[in-house]
Design a protein around this nucleic acid. Structure first.
Length: 207
DNA sequence: CATAGGATCGCCT
DNA sequence: GGCGATCCTATGT
């Protein structure tokens, strides 16, 4: 599809993909898709290999649990298809995709990518000499490699809000060949009680 | 206004 | 595997 490593086609997943009400299904569907960013004409992308679903007001692990609304989480109540980026531990930007219909604050946390496009830019951003597959595993590493920051919260992932999106996801024609999905409980949410056991984490593993 | 703690990472032992 | 970094957010007084 894209043989030139310096470019990424702008063919984002449509609004209809994001406004579906089953956030767990969407988290699973995002595996194998390509997350792309274009900031200052610097294009980077990676294949999504790890996600977690956060199921809104019924999910103790969600920032919107019990219908909580704060300035930070207000974005989660928008219609699906925009970015929710927040600062974690004072250090890391974590990138989520808001899903479902307006008023239903679902989100998918992107926890891992395989670097695909713009590795030279990724080297600058991460101060690494070489970009390896493992360098994109971890939610804080995803945003660092792709240049996603808290100020990008609210950006739409499709359409042409400013001529083009700065963040979008494109279909890559299914999963990489020879890969498989591992389903497990979510990471770092022990405070969520029983909900910490939910099978809402999805990983695409190369066999 | 004060304060506790977090959807993490990387370095240290 | 343990822990410090680092700062914003949410909550309570």
């Amino acid at each position: 599809m894209n043989s030139n490593p310096q470019t990424e086609s702008y063919n984002p997943l449509p609004r209809e993909f994001y406004i579906r009400k089953d956030v767990v299904q969407i988290a699973r569907d995002l595996l194998g898709m390509v997350l792309c960013t274009s900031f200052n004409n610097e294009i980077t992308s990676g294949i999504i290999v790890e996600t977690e679903a956060y199921e809104g007001i019924t999910d103790r692990a969600s920032h919107a649990y019990s219908g909580r609304r704060t300035p930070r989480t207000e974005i989660m109540y928008r219609e699906g298809g925009c970015a929710y980026v927040y600062l974690c531990y004072g250090i890391h930007s974590l990138f989520n995709i808001v899903t479902s219909v307006e008023g239903d604050p679902h989100a998918v946390l992107i926890r891992g990518i395989l670097p695909l496009t713009g590795t030279d830019i990724m080297k600058q951003r991460t101060a690494k000499q070489v970009i390896l597959p493992k360098n994109g595993i971890g939610p804080g590493k995803v945003t660092r490699m792709l240049g996603i920051q808290v100020v990008h919260t609210g950006l739409k992932l499709y359409g042409e809000p400013e001529g083009y999106s700065k963040i979008w996801v494109r279909d890559n024609g299914g999963y990489p060949s020879g890969s498989e999905i591992i389903i497990s409980r979510r990471v770092g949410i022990d405070y969520a009680g029983e909900d910490a056991k939910l099978p809402y984490r999805f990983q695409l593993i190369k066999k």
